[in-house]
Design a protein around this nucleic acid. Structure first.
Lengths: 372, 372
DNA sequence: CTGAAAGCGCTTACAG
DNA sequence: CTGAAAGCGCTTACAG
């Protein structure tokens, strides 16, 4: 309910000065400006349309906008559903377009009439999130994590399921397992990479840098990776793709080359949406409910604005591991090198599920397949 | 730049009454209300945040919201790009949620602070578009067509390319060509169906209702259709799917059943996004640049708001037909029934492109493949 | 059911 | 660089 009057009182200035700050008048002294903005964030200033207070939540990309990606779509859809529940509306904002360089983020958001903001970030623009958090404007970063206690975020934790995924491959007798990730890794891809290395280590398999592929994220890169693995002297018998597009591109290329999945190579993908069911064979994948990330981000902002949420939100939600048709027992080595390396498939039980190593003891079938 | 004062003058009432109407005060006489709303739309009333006029465009579903669909995503992405160019911001609105029953659409939109609206509609809710048009609120309906001169719309015209697609199949020697569409058809699906029938007629092929499949739009339905065609006594050798999800589901099922594409069956799909490149074999498809629909809708609204557009916008944009790997010469009949029916493949030139019927005379290769 | 008037929120010359 | 005051846009008791 705060108006310019409250802000003015709280900052010890006149309402004229508050108005100037909100409109980014360059005449205002920097210290005064900061004092007013900080007071504005403290008091929870609400812009109004006419005399009605706005109920807008911003949805902003800190980097370049890419609504076309399935992940972003799902996040936005979740955000819109969350907004429905909280009686808020989602505004798509473009920070690149019309945030003035000399304007703080708080000024920008208040000028736009939004009362909180969901931030989609990329690794290059984490500093933007830190800045917004520092200013104190209500925000939640989706799909990244921060050490700073001031940054609110929600992220999927794919580490555990990535470990599980690679261990599943190992349990199927795979010994040469490749890994593919973004050439500009964010913390999620790094998590998955760490889990991959951990799984190898847990089972006494040597880490081999040649089996790690770092590429841009698109179908063509997935195809390239699949092709590269086929021309290796010691072919991997399985690949874990840390990204949906890479996995789909690889499946595509496998068909084209006559490489059978999973007979010739097992593939595990990562899925943000429902891509895994739209390819053949359906992809075994570590899955993330991206829509839930957006939903919970806005749900929390709604609580914050209504005063019923604590001032901090740092949350991870579990992924889930879904076994489909793209994985199977390791191909009968055939190639000498595997044997030379001493990588021999253990005696299986016929369905490729020795059970001793997978699922990990304590994990039920529900854990393995069901959504949380 | 109109304010309550101008509206009041124009409608011959006091500003109090204008305010009451904009806030849906039930005390106001119906006639007065309508006079005021009509004046508000005539004068181009602009809501303000503080004293700044808003630059919001609404993005609203007249039916239930489904941002998750690739088509809707692409439209929204295009709308956001169009908004960037026009310095507008897109607000996702939910008509179902908080439009009050006794409130007109104009009142709702003005209450939300939006100055124009992009409408995504489904066949059941065309009346909503007509109502909004009748009220005179700035709007563009995306992906539908209307006879009323008051409704602004932009739609892809897939009729010509659908005709071309089916004639392409005929040119490849196909004689039993199935067609799949939505069980609740909108005008686009009807267009494609008409084109299908037209192509058959143009080439003296009998229309067979048993080759027409009407299903809900999802992967499972596509799979069902593919399966149904395989169990028919006289199997179709080609299928045109009027929707992306149906086509992908069918390709999926074909792999599962060991049905080879295009050797056993040729498939032409419809693509709103880039789905055709994410399946194997890549889909020959009639393609629509959905993003352009959203872009042009908002671009025109931007012009309208700045006074530089005519008051009417009824526009169709061309689709394009892209030949990929899912189509090939008709399978050697083998089955007796085709011959009994007198449907004999004409002598081809080896690559399945007799040329006489396809491409239609006058059409260049560029027309066939390139985006417009 | 409607208007004149009071009053809030905000912005903006004007003064210092 | 900042404030007091005028004034616009809007809403809302109050009066009829």
């Amino acid at each position: 309910m705060a108006s310019v009057r409250q802000i003015a009182e709280s900052a010890g200035v006149s309402i004229s000065t508050v108005s100037r700050v909100l409109n980014n008048d360059p005449a205002v002294n920097t210290d005064t400006r900061d004092r007013v903005l900080s007071a504005a964030n403290r008091s929870g200033y609400v812009p109004t349309i006419g005399r009605r207070i706005t109920r807008y939540i911003g949805f902003a990309y800190t980097g370049r906008r890419t609504l076309v990606d399935a992940f972003d779509t799902a996040v936005l859809d979740g955000a819109a559903r969350g907004a429905d529940d909280a009686r808020l509306d989602v505004v798509i904002l473009n920070l690149h377009r019309d945030k003035q360089a000399d304007e703080t983020f708080t000024q920008f958001f208040m000028r736009k009439g939004v009362r909180g903001v969901v931030l989609r970030t990329v690794s290059e623009s984490r500093d933007v999130c830190l800045k917004i958090a520092e200013e104190g404007f209500p925000h939640v970063v989706v799909s990244d994590r921060f050490d700073s206690p001031h940054v609110n975020y929600i992220d999927g934790d794919s580490k555990g399921d990535s470990l599980r995924a690679v261990e599943y491959l190992i349990s199927l007798g795979h010994r040469r397992i490749a890994f593919a990730m973004h050439s500009v890794p964010d913390c999620d891809h790094v998590d998955r990479f760490d889990a991959y290395k951990q799984a190898l280590a847990n089972h006494g398999l040597a880490f081999d840098e040649r089996l790690v592929f770092r590429h841009p994220i698109n179908l063509a890169a997935g195809a390239t990776i699949l092709k590269l693995t086929r021309s290796m002297p010691e072919r991997p018998t399985a690949i874990y793709f840390a990204d949906p597009l890479l996995a789909v591109g690889a499946v595509q290329k496998a068909h084209e080359l006559g490489v059978r999945i999973p007979d010739d190579v097992s593939i595990i993908g990562f899925d943000d949406a429902d891509m895994r069911h739209a390819v053949y064979p359906t992809l075994t994948a570590v899955c993330q409910d991206a829509s839930r990330l957006g939903f919970q981000a806005v749900a929390w902002l709604g609580q914050l604005l209504s005063g019923s949420a604590p001032g901090r939100f740092q949350h991870t939600i579990p992924t889930f591991f879904e076994i489909n048709r793209s994985t199977g027992p390791a191909a009968d080595a055939g190639a000498g090198p595997n044997l030379e390396n001493g990588h021999v498939a253990p005696p299986g039980n016929g369905n490729g599920l020795p059970g001793a190593t997978f699922p990990p003891s304590g994990a039920s079938d529900k854990d393995m397949r069901g959504r949380p």
